[in-house]
Design a binder for these strands. Structure first.
Length: 353
DNA sequence: TAAGCGTGGCT
DNA sequence: TAGCCAAGCTT
């Protein structure tokens, strides 16, 4: 009974406070019988993996403008999709996005499957995303567990087990709060509550619709939850990047291997990234000069310090690595952020030369 | 199964 | 400033 009261309080709050988002069908529309487009739900959920709403907004608009449905995306050029994704991070998502779109077209007649179990078999769709799409787009009473739900649930039930060990326990508790009614709204309500009220730091318990049910708040430890195991320190790695520009303005770029860090993205040729600065191995013969300063960038699991070398390459340059991209076809914004930083440093160095 | 995999904003 | 954090998935 108590679990149902919590669900009811959550939905009542959501009816008045649901955020308006481009990929979302609001509670009023939903009651009028409108379901959101599964393609847009899927695209938004993949973009939102480990990524904030603010960061996703513009990317979502550009993707849906350029590729309005799953068939269009499935037919897209890989390089153009990678370029459009540039800057959003976790590039495996973009590669899997294409694989998934093509699987939907090839194996599912161009329509997304309508159960979480079937969605789970598609590339890039894991337990969270499968449950979210099924609940939001198909009204399946799937239990959606993301970082927000983990935090809300840990506080609501005062779970002291640290993450990630607490994951099964929190999932079971979240399942208790998953009623048959309005599963899509309920899932989004939990996430909205976590994003706007039950925030990681300084939660707004004073205006929380679940305060009277919250064991964490009652015992004064809500802000400390969920507990987390200590993280490993990040090592620092070093490398060299070569910014080569031909006389006609073409840039010497290289597509990285499909797998691994920045897989499938476009970037400047360079050394491996290792614990000591590697010996130079330029991609083409030229008078390479070091740009003052360095590029600093932090990835998920290490810090990177890049030395940037620039050179003008002759018209007939025949590089050992990479390929030339004409001035008209080169946009720094098509590169992942670390490579855009390299471009920016090289540009500053050439300007002051 | 633990580790690999981006980025930008906030404190 | 440096660490923490965000609507996780894959291998």
């Amino acid at each position: 009974m108590r679990d149902e009261e919590i669900s009811a309080a959550l939905l009542a709050w959501y009816d008045g406070h649901a955020r308006v988002l481009p990929w979302r069908t609001g509670p009023a529309e939903r009651r009028a019988g409108h379901r959101p487009d599964p393609y847009r739900v899927w695209l938004s959920e993949v973009m939102l993996q480990q990524t904030t709403v603010a960061a996703v907004r513009d990317y979502f608009h550009r993707f849906t403008s350029r590729w309005p449905d799953v068939a269009a995306l499935a037919a897209a050029d890989d390089g153009e999709v990678m370029a459009e994704w540039a800057g959003l991070g976790y590039y495996a998502r973009a590669r899997n996005l294409l694989k998934c779109a093509r699987a939907v077209v090839a194996d599912h007649d161009g329509r997304f499957p309508e159960t979480s179990a079937a969605l789970l078999t598609l590339p890039g769709i894991g337990p969270y995303t499968a449950a979210a799409i099924a609940a939001i787009a198909c009204d399946e009473p799937a239990t959606v567990v993301d970082g927000n739900v983990e935090r809300v649930t840990a506080r609501l039930f005062a779970v002291e087990t640290p993450l990630p060990n607490a994951k099964p326990e929190l999932t079971a508790l979240a399942r208790r709060l998953t009623p048959e009614t309005r599963p899509g709204d309920r899932a989004q309500a939990m996430m909205d509550l976590g994003a706007t009220i039950c925030t990681p730091r300084n939660p707004a318990c004073g205006i929380c619709p679940l305060r009277s049910f919250c064991a964490g708040h009652a015992s004064g430890i809500a802000t400390e939850l969920p507990r987390k195991l200590a993280k490993k320190p990040k090592p620092t790695r070093f490398g060299i990047a070569y910014v080569g520009t031909r006389e006609d303005g073409a840039a010497l770029l290289e597509r990285r291997p499909e797998r691994g860090l920045l897989g499938g993205t476009l970037g400047w040729p360079g050394s491996a990234w290792t614990e000591a600065t590697p010996a130079p191995a330029p991609p083409a013969a030229a008078d390479w000069r070091e740009s003052p300063g360095a590029v600093r960038h932090t990835f998920t699991h290490f810090h990177l310090v890049l030395t940037v070398l620039t050179a003008r390459l002759p018209a007939g340059s025949n590089p050992e690595r990479g390929h030339f991209v004409s001035r008209d076809n080169f946009r720094p914004g098509d590169l992942p952020t670390v490579m855009r930083k390299v471009h920016d440093l090289a540009s500053r160095a050439l300007l002051t030369d």
